[in-house]
Simulated assay, not measured.
Amino acid sequence: MELRHLRYFCVVAEELNLTRAAERLHMAQPPLTRQIKQLEAELGTQLFRRSSRGLTLTPTGQFFHEHALQVLEKVDTTVAATRRMARSKRELFGIGFVPSLFYGQLPLLVRGLRQKDNVELTLVELTTVQQIQALKAGRIDIGFGRLLIDDPEVEQEVLFEEPMVAALPVGHPLEGSQPSMAELAEYPLILFPATPRPSLADIVLGMFRRRGLKVHIAQEANEMQTALGLVASDLGITLVPEQVRRLQRDGISYVYLAEKHITTPIICSRRRGEAVSDTMRAANEILAVLVENRRSGKYP
């Protein structure tokens, strides 16, 4: 299978008409028809239903279309970034991160690397699972997440453990206290991210389950900002990493937990066995300073 097959398929999926698709692709219809049939034969499934009224995508065709678009988008992004790097003679360095880390020391790492004249940074918001995939595909060079994932091609380092805090609506009965997990379990829980999983949502659920506590999930949100908005609307409470306290938001009150050992790790992921570039060496040096500052209490 080649990229052109994906491009041909996506155009046909958009047009649902081989004649119009062939015109868009500046090719004759018979060769396009053959390419689509070859693709279906290679996949071992029918991607289109054919009738006198035209084409429609089958369920497997819809699935393939969604993922083919993602592949092509990644390819186009990579090509564009490579061309920018070639024009500027700068090294491309990709950083993947989960959103909650951007309220702590991660911006300081980015700022430090941006001072290097020969580096072009790309920042990509990804879950830890997505970071592992992106590292193996070469889309990023380093990732920062919260899950330990066993993969022979990726090495992970726990930088430090970060306390969890409860985000409550202003005026909540637990505001101003240091509640236990058992007390928090009495209130509806806003969980995030809803997808993809596993994620911070599973870490939070595990904190309750290990203590034999059942929780009522009032709602799931894909974005942390949405989850906090739901908390501010008094629909429930949520647990967030300590760094998120820096996000001052109306209607939200943050409280520390009675159990001080309830934490979530900050994990750095890199490709295993790869030669250390100058930029990676600089990133590691900046990270070492930031981690030491965190452990010594310089940064909350």
Rank of each mutant, 00 (worst) to 15 (best):
Q46S: 13
T127C: 05
T238F: 01
T264L: 00
E66T: 08
A232L: 13
V255Y: 01
A288V: 03
M207V: 15
E175L: 03
V215M: 11
V244K: 00
V124L: 09
E66M: 05
M280E: 12
Q62T: 09
R271F: 00
E186D: 10
L239Q: 05
K214W: 06
Q219Y: 12
R84D: 02
L106W: 06
K298Q: 12
P107C: 08
Q35V: 03
V71G: 00
G251R: 12
T238G: 02
Y8C: 07
T279C: 11
Q225P: 04
G206T: 13
R20G: 03
P59R: 07
H5G: 08
A218P: 03
L32M: 08
M164R: 02
L159G: 10
Y254I: 12
M27E: 11
I266M: 11
D234W: 03
T279W: 09
V165L: 11
V244T: 13
I203T: 11
V124Q: 13
V276T: 07
L47I: 04
V79R: 13
V170H: 10
L121C: 06
V110H: 07
G94A: 09
T82V: 03
R209C: 00
P99G: 02
Y187N: 10
P152H: 07
A86N: 05
R7M: 07
P107I: 06
K74W: 03
R87F: 00
S180Q: 13
R20Q: 15
Y8W: 13
F63N: 01
A221M: 15
V11Y: 06
R245I: 15
Q219P: 02
S180Y: 08
N222D: 15
L43D: 07
E91V: 12
Q243A: 11
I132L: 15
Y103P: 01
F9W: 08
R83F: 03
G236F: 01
R209Y: 15
M27T: 09
L290Y: 04
S100A: 11
K89P: 00
M181R: 14
C10K: 08
L32P: 02
T263K: 10
G229Q: 13
T128D: 09
L3R: 09
R83V: 04
L200D: 03
K74Y: 04
S100I: 09
T19S: 13
A166D: 11
A167S: 13
Q38R: 15
G54L: 14
L3I: 14
L123D: 01
T56Q: 15
L69F: 00
P173F: 11
P265N: 05
Q130P: 08
V75H: 07
L32S: 02
L32I: 04
M1N: 05
E220P: 01
I203K: 08
M224V: 15
I203A: 07
F9K: 10
G94K: 08
L106Q: 06
L168K: 09
Q115W: 02
S277H: 07
D234V: 09
V124P: 03
